[in-house]
Design a protein around this nucleic acid. Structure first.
Lengths: 345, 345
DNA sequence: ATTAGCACTCATTTACCTCGAGTGCTAATG
DNA sequence: CATTAGCACTCGAGGTAAATGAGTGCTAAT
């Protein structure tokens, strides 16, 4: 990487980017000659800009237009921001997260707050329970041939499922089954429930192995369902605020990605797999793992609820995103989520 | 209503609408003179069209353009369709609804199928449990000061909530509470749980009235949450397929409505409150209870899961919607949902 | 009652022009 | 030698005018 950018070039580049973030218009030399502290004439600036263009930090959308930061330019800018470690953590106003005891409600809320706070589109993934453990499990009889399985995971994530059983189950046997499940499964992570354990359980269930098999199928099912991560989105239509994203085709693609969520899931996976600067990740244009976002910037943060339960918060907007604000906001939210976990743990 | 439309005028009107549905362009007299069976010259057609325009079934977007059906015109057309009772019920291909035992999964799926089948935007509301009864209720201890309440309603709708209690609860007392709740609440509709009943319960709970109060608060809370109906949407971005809806402003509004869901909820309420033609309701333009849809047509159907549990399926598209297909599809889906309920009880 | 014919309308498209912001280059300046 | 002033040049945006053509209403002929 070209470490060798003169101070003045850096200042000018910064100025170009800042100005472009605000206006969304290409910025010309004359504008800059006033905007910057260094009292330089437009001509001088022009020379510097020519250099910066040659270095590919900026480019002209067409001859005789001002300059626009390139992806590489944004990247430099963002990297500089990331180095300023002490983000001043401006308090998130109106965050209003109530302790509901139910994580998903909080997350839904978080996505909303984030969207209204930043004016970009946002996504929050429910925690992936990789390594999360079972805290409580219970079967209850609802009708003769119908029982409901309730599983509470760490972080108070609740899953339930109705099971149709082949033959009626006596109260006594139900009790036994519950005992069995609880003593065997509680405290285990999902990964720890392997075939061996399952076989052992079935064995111990004796003549009710049919039922236990059903139950375990259900547990597997629940995990399965959880495989495609739950993702909450908000503020999707914010993208209409940025002309460069709101032409018919782009808007269609992006909004579709937000509705289908499949692509967002890929973002989540990518974010979680690469641990980086304070848990904050910035994808500019092509850097994002999904082609749909090629004209966007995506800023993601990882949050942890302890027990290795991790999730992702993401903000999707135009490349001329207010990176500073966004990153601060994300940091704050990260902390808020942490607090909630402390209380709820 | 002008019953007195000559047969020929009707044929022409129908032709205009059909053609406009396909092309989205104003249709002129020359086009029609070929399109229709009646071998009439464009001039004759023009005369008839002039009449139809005077009767306000069609209009010109501007002088020297072809004609477009007015809302009134669409209305006549739709009414004719509704009279042809025996919708031929073309089987919904790929419906693939598996019995999951969990209503909301099915509904989510239904919205998707519907969207891909029709190429319009769709919404499905979870059943409003007006009159729905509690089928099963249980408290279980998760930790010392934490219990989980599980409530199963008719139609296997499951609600749960974590409760933090002030003081620990012995197993024995928990059992008592469960007995109490079950004997008192099961079979009751939500409306039936009034203040009198609550007072009685607290009384019977004796020195655990604090807990029962918490629990009932939670129940109330659950009902509360259910007050803003759950709504599943799909195919939102289908609206980009129709130029007349995909200009920046319209698209923004409509997609926003789909994201916020508040407005969709109003649609649901309106549909459920007015029972009409085979449970199918058509709103053309201004007829819809939400202003956002003023340039759309909305077709809704009511489904019933028995026990008075009703929900709404809706399709939102351009006015030049393929009403025939949409209505048939909705009818089919209605029946499918019925079948599922039969199996699931 | 139907139709052919014609004059008329008007949105849309195309071509063309002007305007101005912005550039690169060169020569002058401190 | 870095900086600046000056100037010719480029090119997109915006405006106007003309050409195009789909469609109409009206009238007169069939």
């Amino acid at each position: 990487m070209a470490v060798s950018l003169s101070d003045r070039k850096l200042v000018i580049l910064k100025a170009i980017i800042k100005n472009y973030l605000e206006t969304g218009e290409p910025v010309g030399s004359r504008t800059l000659s006033k905007y910057t502290e260094l009292n330089l004439s437009s001509a001088t600036i022009r020379n510097e800009m020519a250099d910066l263009e040659e270095l590919e930090f900026i480019f002209q959308p067409h001859t005789s237009a001002g300059r626009i930061p390139s992806d590489k330019g944004y990247r430099l800018y963002v990297d500089m921001l990331l180095q300023e470690k002490e983000a001043e953590l401006t308090a998130l106003k109106n965050i209003m997260i109530e302790k509901t005891g139910q994580v998903d409600q909080v997350l839904k809320q978080a996505a909303k707050v984030l969207a209204s706070n930043t004016n970009y589109a946002t996504m929050v993934s429910a925690p992936v329970n990789k390594g999360n453990t079972i805290k409580f499990i219970q079967l209850s009889q609802v009708e003769d041939l119908q029982i409901v399985a309730v599983i509470v995971m760490g972080g108070n994530i609740i899953k339930n499922k109705i099971l149709d059983i082949g033959e009626p189950l006596s109260n006594e046997n139900l009790l036994k089954l519950n005992m069995l499940l609880n003593t065997s499964l509680i405290g285990l992570s999902i990964e720890a429930i392997n075939l061996g354990l399952i076989a052992r359980l079935k064995d111990q269930a004796g003549n009710h192995s049919k039922v236990i098999s059903d139950v375990l199928d259900a547990v597997a099912d629940i995990i399965q369902v959880d495989d495609d991560v739950e993702i909450y989105t908000s503020g999707t239509t914010n993208i209409f605020k940025y002309p460069e994203l709101s032409d018919k085709e782009s808007a269609h693609e992006i909004i579709n990605a937000f509705e289908e969520k499949q692509q967002l899931a890929e973002l989540v996976v990518d974010t979680l797999s690469s641990e980086d600067n304070h848990g904050i990740q910035v994808y500019i244009g092509d850097e994002a793992p999904v082609k749909t976002m090629k004209d966007c910037s995506v800023v993601t943060a990882t949050y942890e609820l302890g027990d290795g339960m991790k999730g992702t918060i993401g903000i999707i907007g135009p490349k001329r995103m207010d990176y500073e604000h966004v990153m601060n906001t994300l940091k704050t939210l990260q902390q808020k989520l942490d607090e909630i976990y402390q209380k709820d743990g």
